[in-house]
């Protein structure tokens, strides 16, 4: 065990890479989720079709397969990414598709009366979305986004298979050099758990702020184990 803990600089560097890929991937996924999710709420048929194709395609393919494809297949077509870029691209595209469904569902779940009131105040379509629907939909998006963020973080462990030196990759290195298999994997499982709990705290703070903005009481606090992870994979 002490040999494993002695290699903590390596583990911390790995954890930092994991956090970085998680954050970049989450930001990219969020941008995609908003763009394609809002396209899905549009009245135009073309935009809605764009939403469907993106969601069905990238939700259907596994993140790891996408990562391999960006990493091994695309360079043969002359498209070359740095390993981290390939990983972020794959993870972002995959989780952006889940996020787009969350965005679309949340915007559609804002009561129609709010849309009507905005219409009666003569807001343009863009103003209705930006000033009325989206702020209210945000409160609905945050809990499922929180679950997706944890799922995304877990998926980043796959990058170790394409030789990115994340936490899992470092663990395999340490395991190989020390032979301390059980201790190494136990330590990084705990580290992943800590990262996940930290992410959950951040999401809960955001939830609390939006709830206050909407003048609601705090959302019923979910016990850590009771997070409705089900929403994370809802098609």
């Amino acid at each position: 065990m002490s040999e494993v803990l002695d290699s903590y600089p390596l583990l911390l560097r790995g954890a930092w890479t994991t956090v970085q890929i998680t954050v970049y991937g989450a930001v990219f996924a969020l941008v995609l989720a908003l763009a394609f999710g809002l396209a899905g709420t549009a009245r135009g048929r073309l935009l809605r079709a764009v939403n469907r194709i993106y969601v069905e395609f990238f939700r259907g393919v596994a993140a790891l397969v996408l990562m391999y494809w960006f990493f091994y297949a695309l360079p043969l077509l002359g498209l070359r990414f740095t390993p981290i870029a390939a990983a972020v691209l794959a993870i972002g595209l995959n989780y952006g598709a889940y996020g787009a469904e969350v965005v679309r569902g949340s915007v559609e779940a804002v009561p129609r009366a709010q849309w009507e009131a905005a219409c009666a105040l003569n807001f343009t379509a863009a103003q209705r979305m930006r000033r009325v629907l989206l702020p209210q939909a945000t409160a609905l998006m945050l809990p499922p986004f929180g679950n997706l963020l944890i799922e995304l973080m877990k998926a980043t462990a796959g990058v170790s298979l394409v030789s990115i030196a994340d936490l899992t990759f470092r663990a395999k290195q340490i395991q190989a050099s020390t032979g301390q298999t059980a201790a190494t994997f136990a330590v990084i499982l705990v580290m992943y758990f800590v990262i996940a709990q930290a992410l959950q705290v951040l999401v809960r703070i955001a939830e609390r702020r939006t709830a206050r903005m909407l003048g609601r009481g705090l959302p019923p606090r979910r016990s850590p184990a009771a997070a409705p992870a089900g929403e994370a994979v809802l098609p």
Binding site: I150, M153, K154, A155, T156, A157, G158, S160, L161, T168, A171, K172, Q175, T181, A182, F185, A186, I188, L189, Y192, F193, A196, Q197, Q200, S223, P224, A225, A229
Partner: peptide, 27 residues
């Protein structure tokens, strides 16, 4: 049970697989 399931759910499947595949034999 609550914390065990929470732990399993918020850590990567890949690492859990490593654990099962590489650690269990030593036990």
């Amino acid at each position: 049970v609550r914390w065990v399931t929470e732990f399993v759910r918020s850590t990567p499947l890949l690492v859990q697989l490593f654990f099962l595949f590489y650690v269990l034999p030593s036990w």
